[in-house]
């Protein structure tokens, strides 16, 4: 899922621990706005997504999800670093390093799939996640959003394919 390596570092990282004047919901909205999938959604709708998201912390070395396993969540990295890892028979490759603000694992929101990569916490991390059931329920409530979200998702898949094709061109130069 290398297409999900969206590392947008605009803006300051909102603080997540200490109580502040903004609530967790507002905070979530800010994070969502910074990802390409959600950025085009009108604010009042976005607040519903923000409400239905949850936060979770992982320790360094823990897996958020594992390659080949089913998982039903899309993630936004709030703090720390996450590595996308592809495992082979006897070695594994880090495909991507993700930083705060990255949205990843989003394909699981569209379909029940097995993970092509694993996601491992490289440091202690905090993520914001949304589950497929929730995601779909919101789309059902506001069907007008479906088109926008699908558009972005498909663009991401296309750009990922482009990257893969490019790599192939480099590897097997003109047979």
């Amino acid at each position: 899922m290398s297409w999900s390596a969206d590392t947008d570092k605009r803006g300051q990282e909102p603080s997540t621990g200490e109580p502040t004047a903004t609530c967790e919901l507002d905070d979530n909205v800010e994070w969502l706005r910074k990802t390409d999938v959600f950025s085009s959604i009108p604010l009042e709708r976005l607040r519903v997504y923000a409400l239905m998201c949850n936060r979770r912390r992982f320790r360094r070395g823990e897996f958020l999800f594992r390659q080949g396993q089913p998982d039903d969540k899309g993630y936004i990295l709030l703090s720390g670093k996450v590595q996308m890892v592809r495992e082979y028979e006897n070695h594994s490759v880090i495909v991507h390093d993700l930083e705060a603000g990255a949205f990843f694992g989003g394909l699981a929101l569209l379909a029940d799939i097995r993970r092509l990569f694993g996601a491992r916490a490289a440091t202690d991390v905090e993520v914001l996640y949304i589950e497929r059931e929730t995601f779909r329920k919101i789309l059902r409530q506001f069907p007008e959003l479906t088109e926008r979200i699908l558009d972005v998702m498909i663009k991401r898949i296309v750009s990922m394919e482009e990257k893969i094709l490019e790599r192939h061109l480099h590897e097997c130069v003109l047979v």
């Binding site: 609530c23 919901l25 009042e44 607040r47 519903v48 409400l51 239905m52 929730t134 329920k137 409530q141």
Partner: peptide, 15 residues
């Protein structure tokens, strides 16, 4: 904060 957020979503207790 809550009423404007949820008033359109009354048909699904999920929210």
């Amino acid at each position: 904060r809550t009423v404007p957020l949820l008033r359109d979503l009354r048909d699904d207790p999920f929210f």
